[in-house]
Amino acid sequence: MIEYALQFGFAAASLALLLNLWRLLRGPALMDRVLAVDTMVINIIALIVLAGIHERSTIFFEAALLFAMFGFISTVAYCRFILRGDVIE
């Protein structure tokens, strides 16, 4: 039963990633693209966690945690750059 649920989860997260990619390419505002990348990172974390359940391995969580941190930091750094023209003042 978990296998079927996992297949649905993989399909949903992958389709969500494709929709985010469409928004990333389409824009139109600059911040739309930043938002699309931020959402893509969250979808990738969900994919990694589902892959961890699929492989029955806990080794994937470090990767998910790293993605979460880098996604957040890059979003904030980019917004900071747009707001102030500099990341670290």
Binding site: F8, G9, A12, L15, A16, R23, T39
Partner: peptide, 27 residues
């Protein structure tokens, strides 16, 4: 059953969130 329901619900919410990001009018 609990794990399957959580995975299906989580996947549905991921999909709804991304559809919303494509469909809604402005940022």
């Amino acid at each position: 059953l609990l794990v399957s329901l959580l995975i299906v619900g989580g996947g549905a919410f991921l999909l709804i969130g991304s559809i919303g990001m494509v469909k809604l009018p402005d940022l």
